[in-house]
Design a protein around this nucleic acid. Structure first.
Length: 414
RNA sequence: GCCUGGGUGGGGUAGCUGGUUAUCCUAUGGGACUGUGGAUCCUACGACUCGGGUUCGAAUCCCGACCCGGGCCCCA
């Protein structure tokens, strides 16, 4: 085989596409029901958009090229930056909040493994213009709702970066950033070394380690004891009580961090079993990116679902498409085409294009799992009718084309 | 970028302590059965991932590349 697809890319065959479309539509419906509008941004952007957001360090994982006009272009590695770019470019004066969803492919130059590809698909949601716990809670609830509608159950972990940051408020911003990165990586050893280097006070050090280790039931109380009455803390508590209102099960996890500075408040992640090393199916949080892209500072909250990962584990099964085959004889082929065209308004209809004989046409119908065969022969046509044969039972009845249409419609069409 | 396992027709496989024409199943095209499917038979198609090396001789042994799986790193 000389030609093969590039590494980390995939072909999707009809059966798999049917499943993917089915799940995609479930997610799409959920987002729509919650009042979010679909958007679409370009497949490629100026590379600065992504280096601005994530730093020069990401260049190694970006598909980029110089176009004929000598512009440095990148295939998008994610969709939050393009969405915020779009907002800053044309929507800053729109009524808030703005609620968007998207589903598209992204590209990263990474080593492929289970649940990780070089071209992959993200389904995401962003709400722009609110920094309140209400929007945070809504976004989280929608994420859970989407996954549920796709038949995926996961563990929801919720944290708040403002709490950890409050503890470090006396440190230089770049030192805070470094610490957040170490926390994000769960690199306790590196964190300790860095705190040594900073000669951080023991009190803060102790609190920091306790804070990022907090999980579950009493985490909130303990956190409050550690950091006291601060805005982030009361915001977080407000958020949690709203999550209760939504009836969500969650685990407080103050060890969730983000290595990037524009994540400011709530963060959440959803994990699933059965995915190997790539067990996170959804991640999100509140952030401030608009100012970085030259707009007014605007709070946003969003998340992205790793679509390929939920496809790995979801058990949703699309309803089988009913299909019928119109079969004919050499002297009725043209009539059969006319009849097939009528039936196509009602049901997924096949007709022979291989010049096959009558018997082989039926055999083909059997092969593709057709539920019925419509036989168009001289005898039937003389009576103004066709024969409708049930491939399961073998029963056959003489009916008009309209009756066939009537019996076959009401089924799911493509 | 690192570690590890693996690549034989479209799919699944045998061969792999080197030795004729690479095995079997399945799928696919054509045909037999000529107005009724799943069966059977005939026939066609079709592979040793690629490149070096060792050898009289390599699918088989060695090296490298590529690709796939699993795990690190990373994960905006």
């Amino acid at each position: 085989m000389e030609l093969q697809r590039p590494r980390g890319t995939r072909d999707f065959l009809p059966d798999e596409m049917a499943k993917r479309r089915y799940v995609e539509n479930k997610l799409r419906e959920a987002a729509t029901r919650w009042g979010y509008g679909e958007i679409k941004t370009p497949t490629f952007e100026h590379i600065e958009l992504f280096t601005l957001k994530s730093g020069e360090g990401i260049l190694g994982e970006i598909y980029n090229f110089r176009d004929k006009g000598d512009r440095e272009i990148a295939l998008r590695p994610e969709l939050t930056a393009p969405v915020v770019r779009m907002y800053v470019e044309e929507l800053q004066r729109s009524p808030k909040p703005l609620k968007f969803f998207y589903f598209d492919n992204c590209f990263r130059y990474e080593r492929p493994q289970k649940g990780r590809f070089r071209e992959f698909f993200q389904f995401g949601v962003e709400i722009i213009g609110s920094a309140r716990p209400e929007s945070d809670a809504e976004v989280i609830a929608l994420a859970v709702e989407m996954l549920n509608s796709a038949g995926v159950k996961g563990d929801l972990h919720v944290g708040h970066l403002g709490i950890v940051r409050a503890l470090m408020k006396d440190l230089l911003p770049e030192h805070q950033s470094k610490i957040m990165r170490l926390v994000d990586k769960k690199d306790d050893k590196g964190l300790e070394e860095f705190l040594d280097e900073l000669q951080a006070p023991d009190e803060m050090r102790g609190k920091l380690f306790r804070l990022i280790g907090l999980r579950g039931e009493n985490a909130v109380h303990e956190a409050r004891e550690l950091v006291g009455e601060i805005d982030a803390m009361s915001q977080f508590e407000a958020l949690l009580s709203l999550l209760d209102v939504y009836g969500l099960e969650y685990q407080v996890d103050l060890g969730i961090a983000r290595g990037l500075d524009y994540y400011t408040g709530m963060v959440f992640e959803i994990y699933c079993e059965g995915l190997g090393a790539q067990n996170q199916v959804c991640g999100g949080g509140s952030y401030r990116l608009a100012a970085l892209f030259g707009g007014e500072d605007t709070p946003s909250t969003g998340y992205a679902i790793g679509f390929d990962r939920i496809m790995e584990i979801c058990e949703a099964k699309p309803a089988e498409i009913k299909r019928i085959v119109v079969v004919s004889f050499d002297d009725t082929r043209k009539e059969a085409i006319v009849i097939a065209n009528k039936l196509r308004a009602h049901v997924s209809t096949y007709i022979d294009v291989m010049g096959r004989k009558f018997k082989d046409q039926i055999s083909y119908a059997n092969t593709i799992g057709a539920s019925h065969v419509v036989i168009v022969g001289k005898n039937e046509l003389d009576a103004g009718k066709v024969a409708l044969k049930d491939m399961k039972t073998g029963e056959q009845v003489l009916v008009t084309v309209e009756e066939v249409a009537g019996r076959m419609s009401g089924e799911v069409l493509l």
